[in-house]
Design a protein around this nucleic acid. Structure first.
Lengths: 168, 168
DNA sequence: TATTGTTATACTCTATAACTATA
DNA sequence: TATAGTTATAGAGTATAACAATA
Protein backbone atom coordinates (compact mmCIF):
# COMPACT_ATOMS: atom_id res chain seq x y z
CA UNK A 1 0.00 0.00 0.00
CA UNK A 2 2.44 2.62 -0.91
CA UNK A 3 0.69 5.47 -2.52
CA UNK A 4 1.54 6.10 -6.11
CA UNK A 5 -1.87 7.71 -6.61
CA UNK A 6 -2.19 10.31 -3.99
CA UNK A 7 -5.58 11.73 -4.79
CA UNK A 8 -6.09 14.99 -3.01
CA UNK A 9 -5.17 15.69 0.55
CA UNK A 10 -7.50 17.71 2.68
CA UNK A 11 -5.67 20.93 2.03
CA UNK A 12 -6.04 20.42 -1.68
CA UNK A 13 -9.65 19.45 -1.34
CA UNK A 14 -10.32 22.60 0.63
CA UNK A 15 -8.62 24.78 -1.94
CA UNK A 16 -10.48 23.07 -4.77
CA UNK A 17 -13.86 23.49 -3.15
CA UNK A 18 -13.15 27.07 -2.19
CA UNK A 19 -12.10 27.86 -5.74
CA UNK A 20 -15.24 26.38 -7.23
CA UNK A 21 -17.49 28.02 -4.72
CA UNK A 22 -15.91 31.45 -5.00
CA UNK A 23 -15.95 31.46 -8.77
CA UNK A 24 -19.48 30.17 -8.88
CA UNK A 25 -20.80 32.80 -6.50
CA UNK A 26 -18.85 35.50 -8.28
CA UNK A 27 -20.10 34.52 -11.68
CA UNK A 28 -23.62 34.29 -10.44
CA UNK A 29 -23.50 37.77 -8.96
CA UNK A 30 -21.86 39.29 -11.98
CA UNK A 31 -24.20 37.58 -14.38
CA UNK A 32 -27.19 38.81 -12.48
CA UNK A 33 -25.93 42.37 -12.66
CA UNK A 34 -25.20 42.17 -16.37
CA UNK A 35 -28.67 40.90 -17.09
CA UNK A 36 -30.36 43.48 -14.96
CA UNK A 37 -28.29 46.38 -16.15
CA UNK A 38 -27.72 45.54 -19.78
CA UNK A 39 -29.76 42.46 -20.59
CA UNK A 40 -26.52 40.64 -21.31
CA UNK A 41 -25.43 37.16 -20.44
CA UNK A 42 -21.89 36.68 -19.22
CA UNK A 43 -20.90 35.18 -22.55
CA UNK A 44 -22.35 38.11 -24.45
CA UNK A 45 -20.51 40.48 -22.17
CA UNK A 46 -17.27 38.63 -22.83
CA UNK A 47 -17.80 38.81 -26.56
CA UNK A 48 -18.49 42.52 -26.50
CA UNK A 49 -15.68 43.23 -24.06
CA UNK A 50 -13.23 41.40 -26.27
CA UNK A 51 -14.33 43.35 -29.29
CA UNK A 52 -14.10 46.66 -27.48
CA UNK A 53 -10.62 45.66 -26.50
CA UNK A 54 -9.57 44.59 -29.97
CA UNK A 55 -7.54 46.90 -32.26
CA UNK A 56 -10.34 48.44 -34.28
CA UNK A 57 -13.20 46.88 -32.45
CA UNK A 58 -13.18 43.98 -34.83
CA UNK A 59 -12.28 40.32 -34.82
CA UNK A 60 -12.83 37.32 -37.00
CA UNK A 61 -15.49 34.90 -35.80
CA UNK A 62 -12.92 32.20 -35.35
CA UNK A 63 -10.61 34.33 -33.24
CA UNK A 64 -13.57 35.36 -31.16
CA UNK A 65 -14.55 31.73 -30.66
CA UNK A 66 -11.01 30.88 -29.65
CA UNK A 67 -11.00 33.63 -27.06
CA UNK A 68 -14.37 33.17 -25.51
CA UNK A 69 -14.29 29.45 -25.31
CA UNK A 70 -16.98 27.63 -27.06
CA UNK A 71 -18.43 26.07 -30.12
CA UNK A 72 -18.73 27.88 -33.41
CA UNK A 73 -22.42 27.30 -33.65
CA UNK A 74 -22.80 28.73 -30.16
CA UNK A 75 -20.91 31.81 -31.19
CA UNK A 76 -23.00 32.17 -34.32
CA UNK A 77 -26.08 32.01 -32.15
CA UNK A 78 -24.83 34.65 -29.74
CA UNK A 79 -23.55 36.83 -32.53
CA UNK A 80 -26.98 36.61 -34.10
CA UNK A 81 -28.56 37.89 -30.91
CA UNK A 82 -26.07 40.73 -30.55
CA UNK A 83 -26.46 41.61 -34.21
CA UNK A 84 -30.21 41.72 -33.90
CA UNK A 85 -29.81 44.20 -31.07
CA UNK A 86 -27.46 46.34 -33.11
CA UNK A 87 -24.54 45.83 -30.74
CA UNK A 88 -22.29 44.28 -33.35
CA UNK A 89 -22.21 44.07 -37.11
CA UNK A 90 -20.90 41.35 -39.33
CA UNK A 91 -19.35 41.58 -42.75
CA UNK A 92 -17.30 39.31 -44.97
CA UNK A 93 -13.57 39.73 -44.75
CA UNK A 94 -11.92 41.33 -47.76
CA UNK A 95 -8.83 39.19 -47.27
CA UNK A 96 -10.52 35.85 -47.02
CA UNK A 97 -13.98 35.51 -48.40
CA UNK A 98 -14.72 32.67 -46.05
CA UNK A 99 -14.19 34.73 -42.95
CA UNK A 100 -16.61 37.01 -41.21
CA UNK A 101 -15.42 40.11 -39.44
CA UNK A 102 -17.35 41.10 -36.36
CA UNK A 103 -17.30 44.75 -35.33
CA UNK A 104 -18.69 46.42 -32.23
CA UNK A 105 -21.08 49.19 -33.06
CA UNK A 106 -21.27 52.45 -31.16
CA UNK A 107 -24.32 51.10 -29.40
CA UNK A 108 -22.26 48.11 -28.34
CA UNK A 109 -19.53 50.31 -26.98
CA UNK A 110 -22.06 52.40 -25.15
CA UNK A 111 -23.66 49.39 -23.59
CA UNK A 112 -20.33 48.10 -22.34
CA UNK A 113 -19.46 51.52 -21.02
CA UNK A 114 -22.80 51.62 -19.30
CA UNK A 115 -22.42 48.23 -17.73
CA UNK A 116 -18.75 48.11 -16.91
CA UNK A 117 -18.60 50.31 -13.80
CA UNK A 118 -21.23 48.29 -12.01
CA UNK A 119 -19.63 45.08 -13.14
CA UNK A 120 -16.30 46.14 -11.78
CA UNK A 121 -17.93 47.33 -8.59
CA UNK A 122 -19.45 43.95 -7.96
CA UNK A 123 -16.19 42.19 -8.53
CA UNK A 124 -14.45 44.62 -6.26
CA UNK A 125 -17.02 44.29 -3.55
CA UNK A 126 -17.16 40.52 -3.57
CA UNK A 127 -13.63 39.59 -4.36
CA UNK A 128 -11.27 42.33 -3.36
CA UNK A 129 -12.96 44.45 -0.73
CA UNK A 130 -11.58 42.48 2.16
CA UNK A 131 -8.45 41.25 0.47
CA UNK A 132 -5.13 42.61 1.66
CA UNK A 133 -2.56 43.61 -0.91
CA UNK A 134 -0.27 40.67 -0.29
CA UNK A 135 -3.14 38.29 -0.87
CA UNK A 136 -3.98 39.95 -4.12
CA UNK A 137 -0.44 39.69 -5.35
CA UNK A 138 -0.16 36.08 -4.29
CA UNK A 139 -3.52 35.11 -5.74
CA UNK A 140 -2.78 36.68 -9.07
CA UNK A 141 0.60 35.02 -9.29
CA UNK A 142 -0.64 31.59 -8.29
CA UNK A 143 -3.65 31.60 -10.57
CA UNK A 144 -1.56 32.96 -13.40
CA UNK A 145 0.77 30.02 -13.09
CA UNK A 146 -2.13 27.60 -12.93
CA UNK A 147 -3.66 29.09 -16.01
CA UNK A 148 -0.42 28.71 -17.89
CA UNK A 149 -0.19 25.14 -16.77
CA UNK A 150 -3.73 24.43 -17.90
CA UNK A 151 -3.21 26.07 -21.23
CA UNK A 152 -0.09 24.02 -21.78
CA UNK A 153 -2.19 20.87 -21.89
CA UNK A 154 -5.33 22.19 -23.50
CA UNK A 155 -8.29 20.22 -22.26
CA UNK A 156 -10.68 22.01 -24.48
CA UNK A 157 -9.18 23.66 -27.49
CA UNK A 158 -7.70 20.28 -28.25
CA UNK A 159 -10.76 19.26 -30.13
CA UNK A 160 -12.99 22.10 -31.16
CA UNK A 161 -12.48 21.26 -34.76
CA UNK A 162 -9.00 21.53 -36.06
CA UNK A 163 -6.89 18.84 -34.50
CA UNK A 164 -4.00 20.09 -36.47
CA UNK A 165 -0.79 18.82 -35.08
CA UNK A 166 -0.69 15.91 -37.40
CA UNK A 167 2.14 14.12 -35.77
CA UNK A 168 3.21 12.38 -38.89
CA UNK B 1 -4.32 57.58 -2.44
CA UNK B 2 -7.82 58.46 -1.61
CA UNK B 3 -9.77 56.72 -4.23
CA UNK B 4 -13.48 56.87 -3.83
CA UNK B 5 -14.19 54.88 -6.95
CA UNK B 6 -11.30 52.62 -7.39
CA UNK B 7 -12.62 50.29 -10.02
CA UNK B 8 -10.09 47.55 -10.44
CA UNK B 9 -6.42 48.12 -10.94
CA UNK B 10 -4.58 45.98 -13.40
CA UNK B 11 -3.41 43.58 -10.74
CA UNK B 12 -6.97 43.02 -9.63
CA UNK B 13 -8.18 42.67 -13.18
CA UNK B 14 -5.53 40.07 -13.84
CA UNK B 15 -6.45 38.09 -10.76
CA UNK B 16 -10.14 38.29 -11.60
CA UNK B 17 -9.65 37.07 -15.15
CA UNK B 18 -7.29 34.34 -14.06
CA UNK B 19 -9.78 33.15 -11.47
CA UNK B 20 -12.62 33.00 -13.95
CA UNK B 21 -10.54 31.31 -16.58
CA UNK B 22 -9.04 28.73 -14.26
CA UNK B 23 -12.35 27.80 -12.71
CA UNK B 24 -14.04 27.66 -16.07
CA UNK B 25 -11.42 25.37 -17.59
CA UNK B 26 -11.37 23.23 -14.49
CA UNK B 27 -15.11 22.86 -14.38
CA UNK B 28 -15.23 22.06 -18.04
CA UNK B 29 -12.65 19.32 -17.71
CA UNK B 30 -14.22 17.83 -14.63
CA UNK B 31 -17.69 17.97 -16.07
CA UNK B 32 -16.54 16.20 -19.17
CA UNK B 33 -15.03 13.42 -17.13
CA UNK B 34 -18.10 12.99 -14.97
CA UNK B 35 -20.33 12.69 -17.99
CA UNK B 36 -18.08 10.23 -19.74
CA UNK B 37 -17.41 8.12 -16.69
CA UNK B 38 -20.70 8.26 -14.87
CA UNK B 39 -23.18 10.07 -17.07
CA UNK B 40 -23.41 12.73 -14.39
CA UNK B 41 -23.54 16.47 -14.70
CA UNK B 42 -21.51 18.49 -12.25
CA UNK B 43 -24.62 19.44 -10.33
CA UNK B 44 -25.70 15.83 -10.05
CA UNK B 45 -22.26 14.90 -8.83
CA UNK B 46 -22.45 17.60 -6.20
CA UNK B 47 -25.82 16.40 -5.02
CA UNK B 48 -24.66 12.80 -4.71
CA UNK B 49 -21.36 13.77 -3.12
CA UNK B 50 -23.14 15.83 -0.53
CA UNK B 51 -25.44 12.98 0.31
CA UNK B 52 -22.60 10.51 0.57
CA UNK B 53 -20.96 12.93 2.92
CA UNK B 54 -24.05 13.49 5.04
CA UNK B 55 -24.57 11.64 8.37
CA UNK B 56 -26.70 8.76 7.18
CA UNK B 57 -26.58 9.50 3.53
CA UNK B 58 -29.68 11.57 3.82
CA UNK B 59 -30.71 15.20 3.68
CA UNK B 60 -33.86 17.22 3.37
CA UNK B 61 -34.55 18.65 -0.06
CA UNK B 62 -34.27 22.15 1.31
CA UNK B 63 -30.91 21.56 2.95
CA UNK B 64 -29.69 20.02 -0.25
CA UNK B 65 -30.87 23.02 -2.23
CA UNK B 66 -29.14 25.34 0.20
CA UNK B 67 -25.89 23.47 -0.19
CA UNK B 68 -25.78 22.95 -3.89
CA UNK B 69 -26.94 26.37 -4.82
CA UNK B 70 -29.99 26.64 -6.87
CA UNK B 71 -33.68 26.82 -7.24
CA UNK B 72 -36.02 24.34 -5.66
CA UNK B 73 -37.63 23.43 -8.92
CA UNK B 74 -34.20 22.81 -10.36
CA UNK B 75 -33.37 20.49 -7.51
CA UNK B 76 -36.66 18.68 -7.90
CA UNK B 77 -35.83 18.18 -11.55
CA UNK B 78 -32.38 16.81 -10.84
CA UNK B 79 -33.61 14.67 -7.98
CA UNK B 80 -36.19 13.26 -10.35
CA UNK B 81 -33.46 12.23 -12.73
CA UNK B 82 -31.31 10.69 -10.03
CA UNK B 83 -34.32 8.92 -8.57
CA UNK B 84 -35.23 7.49 -11.94
CA UNK B 85 -31.74 6.06 -12.19
CA UNK B 86 -31.99 4.54 -8.74
CA UNK B 87 -29.16 6.62 -7.35
CA UNK B 88 -31.25 8.25 -4.66
CA UNK B 89 -34.59 7.60 -3.04
CA UNK B 90 -37.09 10.05 -1.63
CA UNK B 91 -39.48 9.63 1.21
CA UNK B 92 -41.59 11.92 3.36
CA UNK B 93 -40.01 13.00 6.60
CA UNK B 94 -41.52 11.50 9.74
CA UNK B 95 -40.83 14.69 11.66
CA UNK B 96 -42.34 17.13 9.26
CA UNK B 97 -44.83 15.84 6.77
CA UNK B 98 -44.02 18.67 4.41
CA UNK B 99 -40.41 17.69 4.06
CA UNK B 100 -38.88 15.11 1.79
CA UNK B 101 -35.83 13.17 2.86
CA UNK B 102 -33.42 12.25 0.13
CA UNK B 103 -31.20 9.23 0.64
CA UNK B 104 -28.35 7.91 -1.46
CA UNK B 105 -28.84 4.35 -2.49
CA UNK B 106 -26.08 1.79 -2.65
CA UNK B 107 -26.01 2.28 -6.38
CA UNK B 108 -25.49 5.97 -5.81
CA UNK B 109 -22.61 5.32 -3.46
CA UNK B 110 -21.08 2.93 -5.91
CA UNK B 111 -21.33 5.40 -8.73
CA UNK B 112 -19.62 8.09 -6.69
CA UNK B 113 -16.95 5.63 -5.65
CA UNK B 114 -16.50 4.69 -9.26
CA UNK B 115 -16.21 8.24 -10.45
CA UNK B 116 -14.34 9.90 -7.64
CA UNK B 117 -10.79 8.70 -8.30
CA UNK B 118 -10.81 9.96 -11.85
CA UNK B 119 -12.43 13.17 -10.76
CA UNK B 120 -9.78 13.75 -8.18
CA UNK B 121 -7.09 12.83 -10.67
CA UNK B 122 -8.25 15.46 -13.08
CA UNK B 123 -8.32 18.11 -10.41
CA UNK B 124 -4.90 17.08 -9.27
CA UNK B 125 -3.49 17.11 -12.73
CA UNK B 126 -4.91 20.44 -13.77
CA UNK B 127 -4.81 22.36 -10.55
CA UNK B 128 -2.16 20.98 -8.26
CA UNK B 129 0.34 19.10 -10.34
CA UNK B 130 2.60 22.06 -10.83
CA UNK B 131 1.69 23.90 -7.66
CA UNK B 132 4.29 24.16 -4.94
CA UNK B 133 3.24 23.57 -1.36
CA UNK B 134 3.44 27.19 -0.33
CA UNK B 135 1.17 28.16 -3.17
CA UNK B 136 -1.36 25.57 -2.14
CA UNK B 137 -1.40 26.80 1.42
CA UNK B 138 -1.69 30.41 0.36
CA UNK B 139 -4.37 29.72 -2.21
CA UNK B 140 -6.50 27.79 0.23
CA UNK B 141 -6.19 30.45 2.87
CA UNK B 142 -6.98 33.33 0.55
CA UNK B 143 -9.92 31.67 -1.13
CA UNK B 144 -11.23 30.53 2.21
CA UNK B 145 -11.29 34.10 3.42
CA UNK B 146 -12.95 35.27 0.24
CA UNK B 147 -15.60 32.64 0.55
CA UNK B 148 -16.34 33.68 4.08
CA UNK B 149 -16.58 37.26 2.95
CA UNK B 150 -18.96 36.34 0.17
CA UNK B 151 -21.10 34.26 2.40
CA UNK B 152 -21.34 37.08 4.90
CA UNK B 153 -23.24 39.15 2.37
CA UNK B 154 -25.18 36.44 0.62
CA UNK B 155 -25.77 37.45 -2.97
CA UNK B 156 -27.87 34.47 -3.71
CA UNK B 157 -29.42 32.80 -0.74
CA UNK B 158 -30.81 36.20 0.08
CA UNK B 159 -33.76 35.64 -2.15
CA UNK B 160 -34.37 32.05 -2.98
CA UNK B 161 -37.88 32.41 -1.91
CA UNK B 162 -38.59 34.05 1.37
CA UNK B 163 -37.23 37.48 2.05
CA UNK B 164 -40.21 39.21 0.68
CA UNK B 165 -39.13 42.14 2.71
CA UNK B 166 -42.26 44.07 2.12
CA UNK B 167 -40.99 47.59 2.13
CA UNK B 168 -44.35 49.05 2.83
C1' DT C 1 -50.05 32.82 6.92
C1' DA C 2 -45.57 30.67 6.03
C1' DT C 3 -43.04 26.78 4.49
C1' DT C 4 -41.99 22.48 1.74
C1' DG C 5 -41.97 20.50 -2.39
C1' DT C 6 -43.91 19.53 -7.13
C1' DT C 7 -45.57 20.65 -11.63
C1' DA C 8 -46.41 23.15 -15.89
C1' DT C 9 -44.49 25.99 -18.90
C1' DA C 10 -41.62 28.67 -21.46
C1' DC C 11 -37.15 29.97 -22.59
C1' DT C 12 -32.04 30.06 -23.01
C1' DC C 13 -28.23 27.88 -24.15
C1' DT C 14 -25.30 24.34 -26.13
C1' DA C 15 -23.68 20.72 -29.05
C1' DT C 16 -23.84 17.77 -33.23
C1' DA C 17 -24.13 17.16 -37.80
C1' DA C 18 -25.25 18.51 -42.31
C1' DC C 19 -24.59 22.13 -45.40
C1' DT C 20 -22.52 26.09 -48.40
C1' DA C 21 -18.69 28.67 -49.83
C1' DT C 22 -14.20 29.71 -50.34
C1' DA C 23 -8.88 28.45 -50.10
C1' DT D 1 -9.10 18.34 -49.12
C1' DA D 2 -9.33 21.66 -45.35
C1' DT D 3 -11.23 25.76 -43.41
C1' DA D 4 -14.97 29.46 -42.16
C1' DG D 5 -19.31 30.02 -40.97
C1' DT D 6 -24.40 29.01 -40.83
C1' DT D 7 -28.44 26.32 -40.01
C1' DA D 8 -31.48 22.75 -38.38
C1' DT D 9 -32.43 20.19 -34.75
C1' DA D 10 -32.67 18.22 -30.57
C1' DG D 11 -31.72 18.03 -25.77
C1' DA D 12 -30.35 19.63 -21.15
C1' DG D 13 -31.02 22.84 -17.81
C1' DT D 14 -33.16 26.74 -15.51
C1' DA D 15 -36.43 29.95 -13.67
C1' DT D 16 -41.13 31.53 -12.69
C1' DA D 17 -45.46 30.99 -11.17
C1' DA D 18 -49.27 28.37 -9.80
C1' DC D 19 -50.37 24.67 -6.95
C1' DA D 20 -51.23 21.23 -2.91
C1' DA D 21 -50.20 19.90 1.54
C1' DT D 22 -48.60 20.63 6.08
C1' DA D 23 -47.06 23.70 10.10
Amino acid sequence: MSDPKPGLNSEQLGAYFALMEVSSLLQYAVDEHLRAEGDLSYVQFQILARLVDAPEGRLRMTDLADGVVYSRSGLTYQAGLLDKRGLISRSPSPDDERSVIVTVTDAGRELIAHVLPGHVDRVHQLLFESMPGEDLTALGAILGRVRDHMRAAPPRSAKPRAARNRTS
